[in-house]
Structure formats: structure tokens, C-alpha cells
């Protein structure tokens, strides 16, 4: 039971990190990342490949963060001046391209077999027995650090400028160089956090394959952010927990409807997540928590049909 709880909390931690990342990219900067899974995969594979080659865990993690941030910056650069749709398209396409590389460059990534026996950092020091608990503690500490940093960013002039660009059409229309750089930075910061989460994923599971970095990861992250209320980091924590409870809670479906196969139950749960996401967008677009948001800035009633 204890082990199960630790495992669940570790999953939640990873989900929280991804949500925090998406929250700065989408929630604060209004930049859509439909390729989150691909960036997550880059982080995980960078850490795993380096660790397999004898690089120590901390350096590998740092490298994962840097590489993912760099890719994020690059991808966001391509569509900087264009409407949000283009970034959504590009990130999604990027994530597909990543999936192809992960599946086909067997020499580097092991192909569909993935990478096994990824050496965990400090496993000699902590010992296998308490490693999971220690890992969870490390995750929580990292969340605290990331949370603190992001909150500072949000309340700093940087964050204010980001929201101004997101909300104000006039500012957005006259995007100067500085503002453009701001957006790239925001996307890269988000990317860095995704990279960190990816590295943690690799070290926690010690085994990764391309199937783990598919669209559902992106959907979970969006769900967490939407449930928590877009832009609110505190709400996000609750959001990620809610999504995880939904996911875990729906496992009982199998007991209720025994005719379903395991595969069908899995599909049904994912469908429920999708339906939940849509329902949230329709009925509670501000999220479940009603935290203070800067919504007064947005005009209340626009023209009908516009």
C-alpha cells in the first residue's frame, strides 16, 4: 500500500511539473504546446542516453534540461510572429518528428524496444530499499524549487509583460524585438521544466520507450492546467492531483463491468479524460478553483458571432 502511494505521488509529481511548464507557456504567455509529449521524450531520452554512457545523473539531468529548453526555443522561434495556431501546428508536428526519431534511430534510442536499465543517480548511496521514497522526496523538493522560481517569474516584470502581450491586442500587434524575445524565453523556461520532468521520468522508471511519449501525456497536462484554472500555479497542483485521481479512480471500472477487456477499460478511461477536458472547456473554462485571475482585463461581452 505504501509502495503504491509512493508510486502514485511520484506520478503526480511528474504531472505537476509538466503542468507547471505548460502553465507558463500557455497560461502565462498564451503559447500553445501540443507537442509537449515530444519535448518530454527529448528530456527523458537525453538523460537516459547520457546516463547509459556513464555520465552521472545530475549532469545528465542538467543536460536534459538544457537540450529540451534549446529545442523549445528553436521551435517557438519559427512561428514567433504568427498567430497561435501556427505554434500549435509546429509543436505537434515536432512531436511527431521526435516520435519518428525515437522509433527509428535504433543505434541511439533503441527503437521501439526503448532503453532499459537506466542507471539511477546516487543509488549506491541511498540503497535500493528506500530509493523510491527518497526519489519522491527529491521530486517534491524540485517541485518546490520550480514553483518558487516560476512564481517569481510570474510576479516579476517579465511575467507582467508576458500577460500584457497575451491579453492586449495592441501590444501583440506591435510586437517589438524585446517582446518577441520574451516569448521565446517563456517557451524555453517551460521547455526546461519539461526537460527536468523527462529526466526524472527516465530515472524513476529506469526503462523508457517511445510509446510513453505519445499524445496522452500532452492531454493530461492540458487537463491539469484547465482543471486548475489556466495561469494559476497553485490551482495547477490541485488540477494535476484531480486528473491523477480520475485516472486511478477509474481503474475500478474493470471490476464494475467485467465484460470489458483490460484494453477496453484503458480506452474507456482515456475517453473519460477527453470528455472531462471538453466538459471543463464548456462549463468551467476558468477551472474548478476560483482563484483570483486577471480576468477583468478581458472585455466581458464581445459582439455576438465575433
Amino acid at each position: 500500500m505504501m509502495g503504491y502511494l509512493v508510486a502514485i505521488l511520484t506520478f503526480v509529481s511528474l504531472a505537476v511539473l509538466l503542468g507547471l511548464a505548460l502553465n507558463i507557456q500557455w497560461g502565462q504567455a498564451g503559447m500553445i504546446n501540443f507537442g509537449l509529449a515530444g519535448f518530454y521524450g527529448i528530456g527523458a531520452y537525453t538523460a537516459a542516453i547520457l546516463a547509459k554512457h556513464g555520465v552521472d545523473g545530475f549532469t545528465a539531468t542538467a543536460a536534459a534540461i538544457a537540450v529540451t529548453a534549446a529545442f523549445s526555443a528553436g521551435v517557438s522561434l519559427a512561428t514567433l510572429r504568427l498567430r497561435e495556431d501556427y505554434l500549435a501546428i509546429t509543436t505537434l508536428a515536432f512531436s511527431e518528428a521526435v516520435r519518428l526519431v525515437l522509433m527509428n534511430e535504433v543505434w541511439l534510442t533503441g527503437g521501439t524496444d526503448g532503453i532499459r536499465d537506466i542507471p539511477r543517480p546516487l543509488v549506491g548511496v541511498i540503497g535500493g530499499e528506500h530509493y523510491e521514497v527518497a526519489f519522491l522526496v527529491a521530486c517534491l523538493a524540485l517541485i518546490a524549487i520550480v514553483y518558487g522560481l516560476l512564481e517569481r517569474i510570474v510576479s516579476a516584470p517579465f511575467g507582467r509583460a508576458l500577460r500584457a502581450v497575451r491579453d492586449d491586442d495592441v501590444v501583440a500587434a506591435t510586437l517589438g524585438k524585446d517582446v518577441l524575445a520574451l516569448r521565446v524565453k517563456a517557451f524555453a523556461v517551460g521547455g526546461a521544466v519539461i526537460g527536468l520532468a523527462g529526466a526524472l521520468h527516465a530515472f524513476y522508471f529506469t526503462y523508457i520507450d517511445p510509446g510513453e511519449f505519445a499524445g496522452f501525456v500532452t492531454v493530461y497536462a492540458f487537463m491539469s492546467v484547465i482543471v486548475g484554472g489556466k495561469g494559476s500555479n497553485r490551482g495547477l497542483m490541485a488540477g494535476a492531483v484531480t486528473v491523477m485521481i480520475l485516472l486511478e479512480g477509474t481503474r475500478f471500472l474493470k471490476d464494475v463491468v467485467p465484460v470489458l477487456s483490460a484494453q477496453q477499460v484503458a480506452s474507456l478511461r482515456l475517453m473519460l479524460i477527453g470528455v472531462g477536458l471538453i466538459a471543463m472547456l464548456i462549463y468551467r473554462p476558468q477551472g474548478l478553483s476560483s482563484e483570483y485571475r486577471l480576468s477583468a482585463r478581458q472585455p466581458a461581452g464581445a459582439e455576438p458571432g465575433s
Binding site: 484494453q263 480506452s267 475517453m271 477527453g274 471538453i278 473554462p285
Partner: peptide, 27 residues
């Protein structure tokens, strides 16, 4: 039902629709 929201919300909704469709097929 979300036509009055910004088009980003519609994008996210369409991703949700894709997710539901795909998993309905798998189901």
C-alpha cells in the same frame, strides 16, 4: 458551445475531440 471563447480554447477542444475519437476507436 464554446464559440464565444478565444480560438485557442477551440484548438484545445479539438485536441480533446481527437483524444475521445481515437480512444473510442480503440475501445
Amino acid at each position: 458551445r464554446i464559440r464565444n471563447a478565444d480560438h485557442i480554447t477551440l484548438l484545445v477542444a479539438s485536441m480533446g475531440v481527437a483524444f475521445v475519437l481515437e480512444n473510442a476507436i480503440r475501445f
